[in-house]
């Protein structure tokens, strides 16, 4: 159940983070409603990890505010981290502890019930509980990290590229765990490169590029509003007029006598118009996958407007 409650799990407004010599985040606005899966996409260095570090209180923003579960991560970082489940990329763990031991150790920091749930999760993931962590494979380590983050049933899960470098089976298990949580009404903020996975599970998607939010919308809207337009021309040298607002061209490629564009909010009238343009022989539309949208967004020639 998607509840549009008054308080979103995460609220970020006009967030900016500047390090000496580089602007990591700029004017970021977003809201993550409770009970949804929010996907954060962007290429390496776009600012995803920085944003997550701000949300978890590991980095101080230079401007703007943010709010996680009603708490201010700048002031109450420790509290925030106690209430959420956070899996960073390459999570640090005590190599010398056994799988069961590390759960027992982590249980000291959480209320009752942690250890039982952890054991259930670990049994479900089929990770040997008496083996030392340094002797686990990468996928098993990731599962242990996930188990540790889920065992206290946090209202908000923040995952920073948790499945990078893992085999498809493990990735599938991660997804299943996530979705299990969402079914209970928990919120998930997922930063990932596996766009095909994101496409299956995201409710909302934000694409970050060079520290700014380029696109922010529900996955459904994105799918509905984007279209791939292929125009067959009679003459390669024909120059086509620009499409007027509200349509936005995110990317445009020319190959011989064909021109292909990724367009957003193309109205049916405009489509008819295009068919009637000079030199246009054929027009076909195709649905875009999230990956296409992502590529178009990042490689597009025009600077698109951001939308909320």
């Amino acid at each position: 159940m998607v509840e549009e409650s008054d308080n979103p799990a995460i609220q970020v407004s006009q967030l900016g983070v500047t390090f000496p010599g580089c602007v990591a985040l700029r004017n970021v606005d977003l809201q993550v409603p409770k009970g949804t899966v929010f996907a954060l996409l962007g290429e390496n260095g776009a600012g995803k990890t920085t944003l997550i570090r701000v949300l978890t209180g590991f980095t101080q923003p230079t401007s703007g505010q943010c709010n996680v579960l009603g708490l201010n991560p700048v002031r109450d970082a420790v509290q925030v981290r106690q209430r959420i489940g956070y899996v960073s990329d390459a999570p640090a763990m005590y190599d010398w502890m056994r799988v069961d031991e590390i759960g027992w150790f982590a249980a000291s920091f959480y209320p009752d019930g942690y250890l039982e749930r952890y054991r259930e999760l670990i049994a479900g993931y089929e990770v040997p509980s008496d083996r030392k962590i340094r002797h686990l494979s990468k996928g098993q380590r990731a599962k242990v990290a996930l188990g540790l983050a889920l065992a206290h049933d946090p209202e908000l899960l923040i995952l920073d590229e948790p499945t990078s470098g893992l085999d498809p089976l493990v990735r599938r298990e991660f997804l299943e765990s996530l979705l299990d949580r969402v079914a209970d009404g928990r919120t998930v903020l997922l930063s990932s490169h596996q766009i095909s996975e994101v496409e299956r599970v995201a409710d909302q998607v934000a694409i970050l590029h060079q520290g700014q939010v380029r696109l922010l919308d529900s996955l459904q809207n994105l799918r509905d509003s984007f279209v791939e337009l292929t125009i067959g021309l009679s003459d390669p040298l024909v120059s086509l007029p620009e499409l007027e607002a509200p349509a936005e061209v995110f990317r445009s490629q020319i190959n011989g006598r064909q021109q292909r564009m990724v367009v957003r909010d193309l109205s049916p009238q405009q489509l008819e118009e295009v068919k009637g343009w000079n030199g246009v022989e054929q027009v076909s539309t195709h649905a875009t996958s999230l990956e296409d949208i992502f590529t178009a967004c990042l490689r597009g020639k025009q600077t698109p407007k951001t939308s909320g």
Partner: peptide, 17 residues
Amino acid sequence: SARVLSQQLAINPNTIN
């Protein structure tokens, strides 16, 4: 249930709902 389906198909239970 939506939960079981979401696990089977690896899609968002909100969508299923």
